[in-house]
Design a protein around this nucleic acid. Structure first.
Length: 976
DNA sequence: ATAGGGTTAG
């Protein structure tokens, strides 16, 4: 039985016997009959409490203490002091003041030891005022003051700490080496190396010599600043003073070399010196940790083996380092099983081991395992430190649990912790990713106010936040600010900003940054290559993109799957399909991931090869890769575009059945696709499902759904569906209102459109050109020209600039009403505003004048139109031709027919009708027969009016019937 | 009881 269990069993049986023994209960214990028995009980309780404390069973420890007090047991001063010490050392620091006051209740005499522990506890809780009060207000010795000095140093208040030396002198409390060494550490922690050396000299003057601990502290200070030459120099001067380096000295040096990545130097030193100093567990752990951080697990394992064969037992720190190494190199399972094996070996996991596992679980997205581990940690009563809390904060933000993360931050501040730059950086990064830029800015200024240093990661995080929100100016401001503070941008900073500039289409700025980065001596890595390649190609500089990529490949920069994915996308979209395929073969060395396959599938979809895309989809599944939401979305979207709606739906159901929950994008794609291709019923069903799932339609989906209503003449559904989509969370912005107004107007529902327009204005959203255009078009289509012109005037009045579409609507409306004089006037107005007619305008002008039989003007505009490079529609040609054909001018009609064919247009059914009627008018049987034949060959059927013309002009008395017979034989025309 | 070295976070 292990000691804990034994004591527990003992405790329970003792408590039971105490509580339920024959005679009258609690009274008996409050006044224990024999003093020796009382002594026995209290010493028993003290042991029990201390055992609980050493196993971090804080609740039980506290309950036992309270129970002991309630029984009126009174331990000796020695026992009390020891208890106090254990409370302070175990982590249950917050109870120290209470235990101390209980102690004072029992033993009023002065107790310097207890006071010093109390000072220490107050220091740990950052209650420096209280600590100082205890030290000043009564008996104090060098330990009391050293502890206070330590407390102030530990809170970054070195200057105040140095100040206590004179107070000690005044009170006649002698200083010792520990006073010196404590201050040394405080100064070193602030990077004040010069000051710490002067302090050391000062103490020497006072007759307090420097010792190995002081030297080691100084050495550690140099190592933390990565000043390894100075560190080595210090070891030499130490030897010069007759102090030989010890295991701590070497461990400090090894760690220093590990930190600067010179593990070989550390190892060399170890090989030469190890017989002299005797490596211990910390020595080996330093190397194991160093190699794990560099992901050289094989080397780490070698050290582990050497450690074990040397008979040095690995401890929880050693295992935590190894677990971290495994987890960080992607071997989560191995890391976790080592975590469990360590426990079986009797080494209890501490907050670091747990934090490592929790960090990994957060980052690899394993929520179930995460909650199990967290539960276990709570049950074991493991106390989290600032780092553990930061891990939680970061993990919660990264998994989108913003509120929980903010709670953790509040919790950190409410505990005795002072958030450091890691905490604040995680907070800033998290708030940026949650699009809370104001919050991020607030955190940054809080850091400044609290004088917490901002690192390159801090600034890069907020730069990333600005970039993601398109606020490049702010991002650049931060970049300048950091440079002013001598925090220099690193490759991540440059990468983020370059990416931002490229995404905003600001190619030059991005390339300038690249130049700057190279000038700063930072070499491009695979991330930079990806940003450059994608940025350049997506901004139309394919050649430059390829040049840079080729250069990087020649330089031997190892590219990864992500780079190849971009490359494949680039080659495909350039039409270099063969090369892209070759690339896929090249990839055989690298393992393609889901995203690579997604791009590959998408490329085939872009070529309209959904069949090919699907077979790659199967290949991917055979490779053991699970398609994700994006994979399905690419396929669903492609099938929708090819109007294969059933297959698209099938894919959607397949996704559901494999347990992949559809996301907002999936729903939007499918609802949009179904709407665009006429299946409004299914689209609406899905929209309802989407609402239940809590997703919001995109503005584009909104537009597609409404357009479908309009195309299917389902006017009644438009407003209702619009309302529904707004209920689902669609923000009714200007674009959304424009879509709604446009759809209502195309259906001629201008009154409803006007109501919507007013609602929009009521919400403070002003109409833009699109809004007014939709309304004007609506009024024109429904023949309310006056309203159309009222709207136009209103548009000009509120300062919205009309564009060519505005005028085309108005011109079209006037033209349809035959008001050609006004057309000409408006045309001039338009041209005066610097707007040139486009193809649509010309079609309106040509056909408008033709319709009122103004042959001269219509031909004039026709010539101008053609001269300006616009091709009239077949409809315009028809109006123009009929203008001539109707009055028997068949020569120009014929010429126009030739012209339209020269321009790549083909006559349609109406063209033939017009021409046949024209020739009939002239009784030209040959032409009529020829055209009828040609028309028939093209599968056109003459209109009833054409047949009547033929009949009218060809029918001589008695032959009308014959003509009709002929016609019906040729075309199966029932009636003439 | 107070001072130096190893593991975790952005």
């Amino acid at each position: 039985m292990n000691p804990l269990k034994r004591i527990k069993t003992l405790a329970i049986s003792n408590c039971k016997s105490l509580l339920y023994s024959s005679s009258s209960s609690s009274h008996h214990f409050q006044n224990p009959s024999s003093p020796s028995k009382s002594h026995l009980y209290s010493s028993f309780f003290c042991t029990l409490i201390q055992t609980f404390l050493s196993c971090y069973r804080f609740t039980q420890a506290l309950n036992s203490f309270l129970f002991m007090r309630s029984l009126g047991l009174n331990p000796t001063v020695h026992q009390w002091n020891h208890l106090l010490f254990r409370f302070n050392a175990s982590g249950l620091v917050s109870e120290v003041p209470n235990v101390y006051s209980e102690l004072i209740k029992c033993h009023q005499s002065s107790n310097l030891f207890a006071r010093n522990v109390l000072i220490h506890a107050f220091c740990k809780m950052r209650m420096l005022d209280m600590a100082l009060e205890v030290a000043r207000d009564g008996e104090a010795d060098v330990v009391s003051y050293n502890t206070v000095i330590w407390g102030f140093c530990d809170n970054g208040m070195v200057t105040s700490a140095v100040g206590f030396l004179s107070e000690m002198f005044k009170r006649g409390v002698g200083m010792n080496t520990i006073s010196c060494n404590t201050l040394l550490k405080g100064l070193c922690d602030e990077g004040m190396l010069d000051e710490s050396e002067s302090l050391m000299n000062m103490f020497v003057c006072w007759g307090i010599g420097r010792d190995i601990v002081g030297f080691n502290t100084l050495l550690s200070g140099h190592c933390k600043l990565k000043a390894m030459d100075e560190a080595m120099g210090l070891v030499e001067s130490m030897k010069g003073e007759g102090i030989s380096p010890d295991v701590v000295t070497y461990n400090t040096l090894f760690h220093g070399f590990c930190r600067v990545g010179e593990l070989d130097k550390a190892e060399g030193l170890m090989d030469v010196e190890k017989d002299g100093f005797g490596p211990n567990a910390i020595t080996y752990t330093t190397f194991i940790g160093g190699y794990c951080k560099r992901k050289q697990l094989d080397k780490a394992c070698l050290f582990y083996k050497e450690m074990v064969t040397s008979g040095i037992l690995p401890d929880v720190v050693t295992y935590s380092a190894l677990i971290n190494g495994l987890c960080k190199s992607g071997q989560l399972l191995k890391g976790y099983s080592l975590f469990r094996r360590m426990e079986k070996m009797g080494i209890t996991a501490n907050h670091v081991s747990y934090s490592t596992i929790i960090d990994t679980l957060f980052k690899s997205g394993k929520p179930r395992e995460l909650s199990i581990i967290q539960g276990e940690m709570v049950v074991r009563g493991i106390i989290l430190d600032l780092v553990s809390h930061t891990i939680l904060l970061d993990g919660l933000f990264k998994t989108g649990m913003v509120d929980e993360a903010e709670k953790v931050f509040k919790h950190i501040s409410s505990l005795q912790f002072k958030p450091n730059h890691f905490t604040y950086t995680a907070l800033i990064d998290g708030r940026c990713k949650a699009e809370d830029l104001k919050g991020a800015e607030l955190a940054l200024s809080e850091m400044q106010n609290r004088s917490i240093c901002r690192t390159v990661v801090t600034y890069s995080s907020i730069i990333c936040g600005y970039v993601r929100n398109g606020m490049l100016d702010m991002a650049v401001d931060i970049m300048n600010k950091m440079k002013d503070e001598h925090v220099f941008p690193n490759i991540v900073t440059y990468c983020t900003l370059m990416d931002g500039f490229f995404k905003m289409g600001k190619l030059e700025e991005a390339l300038d940054l690249y130049e700057e980065m190279l000038k700063e001596g930072i070499d491009a890595n695979k991330f930079i290559v990806d940003v450059l390649y994608n940025g350049l190609r997506k901004n139309g500089s394919m050649k430059k993109a390829e040049t840079i990529l080729r250069y990087m490949l020649e330089k031997g920069l190892p590219l990864d799957c992500v780079n190849y994915t971009s490359l494949m996308d680039g080659l495909f979209k350039q039409g270099k399909i063969e090369d892209a395929f070759k690339l896929e073969l090249l990839m055989k060395n690298l393992v393609p991931d889901v995203i690579f396959y997604n791009v590959f599938i998408n490329c085939h979809c872009l070529l309209g090869e959904s069949g090919q895309a699907k077979s790659i989809f199967y290949e991917m599944k055979n490779m053991g890769l699970s398609p994700d939401n994006a994979t399905y979305n690419i396929l669903i979207s492609a099938h929708c575009k090819e109007k294969k709606l059933d297959e698209a739906l099938e894919l959607f159901h397949e996704m559901n059945s494999t347990g992949l929950m559809p996301n907002a994008i999936n729903y939007n794609t499918l609802v949009g696709g179904l709407s665009q291709h006429g299946n409004l019923t299914k689209a609406v069903d899905l929209l309802n499902e989407m609402a239940v799932a809590g997703f919001c339609p995109s503005p584009s989906t909104h537009r597609k759904v409404l357009l479908a209503c309009s195309n299917l003449k389902r006017a009644d559904s438009i407003l209702q569906l619009h309302e529904q989509m707004v209920q689902m969370g669609l923000r009714p912005d200007r674009a959304v209102y424009n879509a709604l107004i446009h759809v209502l107007c195309t259906l001629g529902m201008t009154q409803k459109a006007t109501v919507v327009f007013k609602e929009m204005l009521g919400k403070g959203i002003a109409g833009d050109t699109m809004t007014f255009n939709a309304l004007i078009l609506g009024h024109c289509r429904s023949g309310h020209l006056d309203k159309a012109f009222d709207t136009y005037s209103q548009m000009l009045l509120v300062g919205v600039t009309p564009n060519i579409a505005t005028y085309n609507s108005l011109l079209g409306g006037l033209s349809a009403a035959g008001r050609m004089e006004e057309v000409d006037r408006l045309l001039h107005e338009m041209q005066n505003k610097g707007l040139a007619p486009d193809g649509i305008t010309y079609n309106i002008l040509v056909s408008g004048h033709a319709k009122i039989s103004d042959k001269k003007k219509s031909v004039l505009f026709y010539c101008e139109m053609v001269r300006n490079g616009f091709v009239p529609t077949i409809g315009t040609y028809n109006v123009l031709i009929s203008n001539f054909a109707n009055v028997g001018m068949m020569t120009p009609a014929k010429e126009l027919l030739n012209e339209l064919q020269k321009r790549g247009l083909s006559p349609n059914s109406s063209t033939y009708d017009i021409l046949i009627s024209g020739w009939s008018r002239l009784s030209n049987e040959t032409e009529v027969k020829r055209l009828l034949k040609e028309m028939g060959e093209k599968g056109f059927v003459p209109a009833a009016s054409t047949n009547r013309s033929i009949a009218r002009f060809f029918a001589r008395p008695g032959k009308k019937k014959q003509a009709q017979k002929l016609l019906s034989k040729m075309y199966n025309v029932k009636d003439g």
